[in-house]
């Protein structure tokens, strides 16, 4: 009984309200982005941040980009479609003391903004990129995305998609990220732990969150409700260590989750300021 009360007290101590300007996030009922918002703010809370004054949020265009802007009680810069990472880059360079966090969807980060994503990972830019991957362009009504699984029906692939999806978490790892992980909204605890870890690390950190979009993805892809989608995430999830031992055929239709990379490498901020110091020391 005593233990139970401890749990309750602990839960009530945390509220997303603590960090938000408004609770009226504009997402559809059943949207996975509510879970992502919760997981992120819970991670911030558990890390001991009383408010978001040490954070700056950059986002692009799309549903995921509306997570921080303007709902978080923080500095938030809502940029153009695909351009959140360049804006975040210069902010981090000029204000290395702030935690710069990018929120974006799969279309924003690895569709129109893919170039910036790869280069930020290459530079090991000190930003945390959180990508809500709903495998579709949700805000515009459910068009095929670079992350849509093969043969999935969307509004622009009415007979099924004929393209292979992009593996963003793996790409970040290969391009030079310090940390890259993928979880789903059906794994809220693991997601929260990954976010906590990523906020504490340096360099380019990427967390891909497979999230359900019942409105734009579910209706065309044949899911009747949110529960079915979450069940799909749970059932098809395979840990990356396991996936390494599986062949192409076995991996078909699976969602590989877990940590793809964690490495230590000098970051962009460290490199830029080291070179600056050297330039200043060498006189003219």
């Amino acid at each position: 009984m005593q233990k139970y009360w401890k749990e309750v007290v602990k839960i009530t101590e945390f509220s997303v309200q603590k960090y938000m300007r408004s609770l009226r996030q504009p997402f559809c009922p059943g949207c996975g982005l509510f879970s992502l918002t919760h997981a992120f703010l819970k991670a911030v809370y558990e890390l001991g941040y009383e408010n978001l004054s040490k954070f700056v949020f950059c986002s692009g265009i799309g549903c995921s980009s509306w997570i921080p802007s303007p709902y978080f009680m923080a500095d938030s810069i809502h940029t153009l479609h695909g351009r959140s990472i360049p804006v975040a880059t210069s902010i981090k360079l000029l204000r290395p003391d702030l935690n710069v966090v990018v929120f974006g969807g799969d279309g924003d980060i690895v569709g129109i903004g893919l170039n910036h994503f790869i280069h930020a990972a290459r530079r090991n830019t000190d930003i945390l990129v959180i990508m809500g991957n709903n495998m579709v362009y949700g805000m515009t009504g459910g068009q095929v995305a670079p992350t849509t699984p093969l043969k999935t029906r969307t509004t622009t692939t009415p007979y099924g998609s004929f393209e292979y999806p992009l593996d963003a978490a793996k790409l970040a790892a290969v391009a030079g990220a310090s940390y890259s992980a993928r979880w789903t909204t059906a794994h809220p605890k693991e997601l929260k732990e990954a976010l906590k870890k990523a906020i504490g690390l340096d360099g380019f950190r990427f967390i891909e969150v497979i999230t359900q979009c019942p409105t734009a993805f579910g209706r065309k892809a044949g899911f009747r409700n949110v529960g079915e989608m979450l069940k799909w995430f749970k059932d098809s999830a395979v840990l990356v260590q396991q996936a390494d031992k599986m062949d192409q055929e076995e991996l078909e239709g699976k969602i590989v989750i877990g940590e793809f990379v964690e490495r230590k490498r000098a970051t962009l901020v460290e490199n830029v300021y080291a070179i600056m110091k050297e330039a200043q020391r060498n006189g003219k």
């Binding site: 950059c58 940029t79 360049p86 804006v87 880059t89 210069s90 902010i91 204000r95 170039n115």
Partner: peptide, 16 residues
């Protein structure tokens, strides 16, 4: 990496 990023970074800098 391109002009889109260049002008984006300039805007970010201005907000600093």
């Amino acid at each position: 990496e391109d002009e889109l990023a260049s002008i984006g970074a300039v805007m970010g800098a201005s907000w600093c």
